[in-house]
């Protein structure tokens, strides 16, 4: 298994390099260093000299990919790509172009805030969706199943924005049970800020979650071993929660484990609307401010986590099924 993991990690390097290069090229295709300088310096009283100064101070005066006036190896190293993008592979994220803050430190600071939001949503959602999906699967082909599906489709059809604004209006403004938005670094005080976004995060995806897992369970409960278990006189709870759930683990794991690394990336909309200073709102802010350094770091982190998630899924298969061998 170790050899397999090493091989997978080695495969990841060119993937990450390609993603990095692609993002670099795409970004510079739409946004030149001059634009970045103007975005930073603003419109008023800006001169060409100031723009040149800004580029020089932020390292954007260098050529993008090849510095043809320099000898080898500076032909590669004295370029924007080498100085800004290559250090990412050592997890050196550099500084924000807009406020000069250290991106690595910001990530460290913000990841716990994102996790405060995403972990409860992830855990409670998973349990709730599995539970409801099994119930609905149990009542398959009854009017309960039909109505549950109708409700699921309705819930899936509603925009996330509606859940957020509706939730804020109902719970925070009308019922006055939770703050409209905000956050507190002290977890004791942060709970009251998290209740509403967590609730909305769970409810907003309940339709799609229950439908997805119901499909998996329906596939399982029609199999012979379930019929055998029932024929042996096992209770319906045991049949569902022990036998069916265990055997449905493969597709569930594929869906769940690949999502785990992404928990640290936060949730864009919820963080933005509820003022939670996690990585989701960091990413949105960076896009709005055209902060290339932060966007580049977040895309790199996202691609890294995706690759890590896929490796974790493979490893998790060996844990739930001893027959699986990673070679």
């Amino acid at each position: 298994m170790l050899a397999y993991l090493i091989r997978r990690v080695a495969y990841a390097v060119p993937i990450l390099f390609g993603v990095n290069l692609l993002i670099f090229l795409l970004f510079f295709f739409v946004q030149s260093p001059d634009d970045m300088a103007e975005t930073f310096l603003g419109e008023k009283r800006v001169t060409e000299e100031m723009k040149e100064n800004w580029k020089r101070e932020h390292g954007y005066h260098l050529p993008r990919l090849l510095n043809t006036v320099e000898p080898f190896p500076a032909v590669f190293t004295q370029t924007i790509f080498w100085q800004k993008s290559v250090p990412l592979f050592a997890f050196r994220f550099g500084k924000s172009d807009m406020d000069g803050s250290r991106i690595g430190a910001e990530l460290k600071r913000r990841i716990p805030y994102s996790l405060c939001l995403t972990v409860p949503i992830f855990c409670i959602s998973l349990l709730l969706y599995l539970f409801f999906a099994m119930i609905v699967a149990f009542y398959r082909a009854t009017y309960l199943d039909t109505w549950a599906l109708v409700v699921c489709v309705i819930l899936m059809s509603i925009s996330s924005m509606f859940y957020i604004l509706g939730g804020q209006y109902l719970v925070a403004i009308h019922l006055k049970l939770a703050p409209v938005s905000g956050f507190d670094r002290n977890l004791l005080y942060a709970v009251k800020f998290l209740v509403l976004p967590v609730l909305i995060g769970i409810v907003a995806n309940i339709g799609s979650g229950v439908r997805y897992y119901r499909t998996i369970f329906l596939e399982e409960i029609n199999k012979d071993y379930i019929r055998t278990a029932r024929a042996k006189g096992l209770g319906e709870g045991t049949v569902l929660f022990k036998h069916a759930l265990k055997n449905a683990m493969f597709p569930i794991l594929t869906n769940v484990v690949v999502s785990i690394p992404f928990l640290i990336m936060g949730m864009l909309l919820l963080e933005n609307f509820f003022g939670i200073p996690g990585l989701g709102s960091y990413t949105i802010d960076a896009i709005h401010k055209q902060d290339f350094a932060v966007v580049r770091a977040m895309v790199f982190l996202g691609s890294f986590l995706y690759v890590a998630g896929l490796i974790l899924v493979d490893v998790s298969y060996t844990l739930v099924d001893p027959r699986v061998r990673l070679t």
Binding site: I173, V180, S181, G182, N272, F274, G275
Partner: peptide, 16 residues
């Protein structure tokens, strides 16, 4: 001062 990126939550907090 707290960050309120969206206008609606800020307005509702003022009303409250």
């Amino acid at each position: 001062m707290h960050l309120e990126k969206e206008a609606v939550p800020a307005w509702n907090k003022f009303l409250q």
